[in-house]
Design a binder for these strands. Structure first.
Lengths: 148, 148
DNA sequence: TCCAAACAGTTCAACATCAAACTATCTCTC
DNA sequence: GAGAGATAGTTTGATGTTGAACTGTTTGGA
């Protein structure tokens, strides 16, 4: 992963770290998410199902916030999940602006059946690092992610 | 960033590290790439221009490989760059399957004028970590990224 | 009470992205 | 030299993604 950049050592180190960060996230993500294709789910769809599974019923704004996506995007992803019968929209009666997203029975079964292999994939991907190293990494990433 | 997952400590640690990795990459990327909008460039377009700037003329397959994208995607991104007059396609005469992508003069100026602020943005984002910590992080990420 | 501002979702246009099917070209082998 | 298989790019169909404009709904202050 050479940087091909003729800058100061500070600059080269930061650029190199940046590339490694993006590549590692890409690489681990694609490794971890590979199994989703067999279930006909995209990464975003999985994210929505997982959030609903762990947090219960949510409206689209909450989902957007949890998943760090725009509300327009959530409309699309929820549309596609609803088409597959995995979630259901229910208009809130007290505040008619709000739409609650529910897992259907099929959706619940689907996510419940996928989660174990997802967790196993993540554990496997991180097994190249010891628990202490994972903790060390987590600390560095947390500080990095807070930078803005 | 709680995991809301009731698994073993090994599982929770890996899941937590995974979330931190993805969030940090997202957060740093969006911080670093924010300035591209002012120049009317997307992240992918910037990636192509940067590769051409540092590596010289490339064909689309090479570009796809460098940027870890599909060749179909490269067709689209190069189309959009060509529309803006920033790159130019030139059919190879020896092997007529191959298309070389060149930076135009405008493209060269554009990427040259953007790079300094890009580098500054990366340095700034990583300035929350000391050089030693960045090196430590890089090592962990490198091992993680190799996992597949 | 009424209206302006805030808020939840949707829609739209533009771009990204992939996998898979396809076209054109090249190369290797018989 | 002809055909099989490999290779470079394009196209297509489906999905994701954003920002901005838009619709309906709610709420708070004059």
């Amino acid at each position: 992963m050479p940087t091909h950049f003729d800058g100061s050592s500070t600059e080269c180190l930061a650029l190199d770290s940046f590339i490694k960060l993006v590549r590692a996230a890409d690489s681990v993500s694609s490794q971890v998410n590979e199994h989703l294709r067999e279930h006909g789910l995209t990464v975003s769809q999985f994210g929505v199902l997982e959030a609903l599974y762990h947090l219960g019923v949510l409206n689209q704004s909450d989902l957007a916030q949890k998943l760090l996506k725009s509300t327009g995007n959530l409309t699309t992803v929820v549309d596609n999940l609803a088409k597959q019968g995995l979630v259901e929209r229910r208009r809130c009666t007290e505040d008619r602006r709000v739409v609650y997203i529910h897992l259907t029975d099929v959706g619940h079964e689907t996510i419940a059946s996928i989660l174990p292999s997802h967790v196993a994939g993540v554990v496997d991907a991180f097994s190249v690092l010891s628990p202490e190293e994972q903790t060390e990494l987590g600390g560095l990433l947390r500080r990095l992610g807070k930078g803005k």
